[in-house]
Amino acid sequence: MIVELFGPPGSGKTTFAHALASRLREDGYRAEVVRSYRPTTKSGTLDLGVFLFVARIVSATVSTAKIIFFPRNGGSNLSKSLLMLRAIPPKKPIWRARIWQHILKLSHAWDRAKLAQDILIFDEGYVQAIGSLALLNGNADKAILETMLSNVPVADFTIRVVVPRAMVAARLRRRMEREPPAERLFEADFEVNMRSLSVFKTISDILAVSGRDVICAKTSSQRSTVKSTQDVEQAIIARYILDKTDGERRRGDQSSQTLGLYGP
């Protein structure tokens, strides 16, 4: 089962994803967070500067090459990522390189997740990637977003992480204060990130009209986060049990048909 989260930067997607996975594991289910990303933070007063910048680029280049040349679907995932980038190109070259690499790795991880029996949670899935592209482009209209959302793989569960605007602003400011200067070269600035609130509201409206079932999770306080985690977990477990029962029934029907063909 694939679960994906979306919401503005600073909304608490990663924290919520790990809390949800932990709760599912405590209740006996195999769950993990996939493609989780946390920005680098300063280590005291030390700033690694250029070293961090170069190391990140080298690491990204090596990992991306492995995905393109070695996995079976490397070529397909490469084409998918390039098509998404051409549809909504980010303004800055460094943003284009970063989001392209992210989508490529996301596609690879998603392909693997479809074959797994576990509950796999993407704190940044395809819906988030489309929102990020629109944010970094600055001019993506609703029609483009509708087309993009209708052409990407759909998760079994889509969760919108909701938090008040003032809290997003405060969290983003704290994040930027902790980031090394070299890390900021890869990230959008404060004003760009704050525009994501309207972008993801538009995306949520599009998904609702399209009929996709989206669950809202509130992370404005510890209490609301715990409550949302409980509610989302219950919905996931109910669906997980239903899917498992349906799968067992289908296998049973196939076995019965086989016995009917060959006799006792």
Rank of each mutant, 00 (worst) to 15 (best):
Q117I: 05
Q101L: 02
K142T: 11
R35V: 01
R86A: 14
D189C: 02
I68T: 03
I144F: 07
K91F: 02
F51N: 07
S81Q: 04
R165E: 10
M167T: 12
P181W: 03
H18E: 15
L83M: 10
R175P: 00
F53E: 10
G131C: 02
P90T: 06
L242S: 06
E233A: 15
V58A: 15
V199Y: 03
H102G: 00
F16E: 02
T225Q: 13
R173E: 14
L261T: 13
I206L: 15
A113S: 05
Q257P: 01
Q254F: 12
R178V: 02
S79W: 05
T41K: 15
E146P: 01
P181Y: 02
A169T: 11
T41M: 08
I68Y: 13
P181D: 06
D123Q: 01
N137K: 07
E183G: 02
V232W: 05
D111Y: 01
R250T: 12
R195P: 03
V161E: 04
V154A: 14
I99S: 00
P153Y: 02
G44D: 11
A113C: 09
F190A: 13
S63T: 14
V34C: 04
K227W: 08
S198A: 15
W110G: 05
S59L: 11
K80F: 14
V209K: 08
A109Y: 00
T147R: 06
P90E: 07
A140C: 09
K80H: 09
V163A: 13
R174W: 05
R160N: 10
Q254L: 15
K91R: 13
L5Q: 07
D141P: 11
R25V: 07
A208L: 06
A60C: 08
A155R: 01
A188V: 01
S256L: 13
F6N: 03
T64F: 02
T229W: 09
R112P: 00
D123Y: 03
V209E: 10
D156T: 10
L149R: 04
R178P: 01
V199A: 11
D123N: 04
L172I: 13
R171I: 04
L145V: 07
P8A: 12
F6T: 00
R38H: 08
I203R: 06
Y126P: 00
T225S: 14
I130G: 00
W100T: 00
R72V: 04
L145I: 15
G263R: 08
F200H: 01
S59P: 04
